[in-house]
Amino acid sequence: MSSISLSKGQRIDLTKTNPGLTKVIIGLGWDTNKYSGGQDFDLDACAFMCNADNKVENDNEFIFYNNLKSPNGAVEHTGDNRTGEGEGDDERMNVDFSLLPSYVEKVGITVTIHDAEARAQNFGQVSNAFVRVIDASNNREILRYDLGEDFSIETAVVVCELYKHAGEWKFNAIGSGFQGGLAALCRNYGLDV
């Protein structure tokens, strides 16, 4: 079975069409356009574990480079990649649907540019961004979403959301940009900055 390629706004079923799927790897990748500013880019993937109101209930269910694992290990960031060099995934998140607390109805997956304002950087200088969902049990890529080049001044992007519907988990290809970096995303998901 080959991987399904999604475009912005598409939703696709994960657990229903893949019976027994409990653990997935969310792989994120990007390339940065070198430019005269000379500063390195450091892009960071984050996950927001949200309730039905799209809010994170506990600060420790916001997963990022300073909090790599949710309390029971349902969502785990495998580590910061500071360069984005090379092929394949730049950062990865592991998600275990069976461990997610019952009130978590959505996991928002985002990417931000670290220190974007100070370095005068934005997603207009990032290309080939993608997310893919991999079945952790056999390493098979289930789907892939290429974000395209729709960004200019944004410093944060909600890449996708995994969400629960009628007891099954689905994937929503979002690709929406924010100005204001990580702080804007935190406010979006109900966290105090």
Rank of each mutant, 00 (worst) to 15 (best):
L100V: 02
K69Y: 05
Y65D: 11
P19M: 07
Y35R: 11
G108M: 05
L68G: 12
N51S: 14
L6I: 01
V95I: 10
A118Y: 04
V107L: 08
F62G: 06
S5D: 10
L6V: 02
S127L: 03
E154N: 01
K69H: 00
N54T: 13
G29A: 11
V131G: 09
G124H: 03
E57Q: 15
R82L: 14
A52C: 13
G124F: 04
R119F: 01
T32P: 05
V158Y: 07
A166F: 14
Q121S: 04
G9I: 06
T155P: 14
D59E: 14
L182Y: 14
I174R: 12
L143T: 09
R132Y: 00
I153Q: 07
L162H: 02
F130R: 06
D13M: 05
Y103M: 04
D150P: 10
T112I: 01
V56R: 08
V133S: 01
A52P: 03
I109D: 00
T15I: 00
G177D: 02
N67F: 08
D90T: 01
N60P: 06
E85A: 14
A156I: 04
I26P: 07
T32N: 12
D135K: 01
L28I: 10
N122C: 05
P19E: 11
D80C: 08
D40M: 11
K55N: 12
A173P: 06
F62E: 13
G27W: 12
C186R: 15
Y65C: 06
F41T: 10
Q125P: 02
M1S: 05
S102Y: 04
T17F: 12
L185I: 02
I4P: 04
V75M: 04
A184K: 05
W169C: 00
D40H: 08
E87D: 13
D135H: 03
K8N: 07
V107C: 12
N58Y: 15
I174S: 09
V111H: 03
K170N: 13
V157L: 01
Q125M: 03
Q10R: 00
D42K: 10
T15D: 04
L147W: 04
E105W: 04
L68F: 13
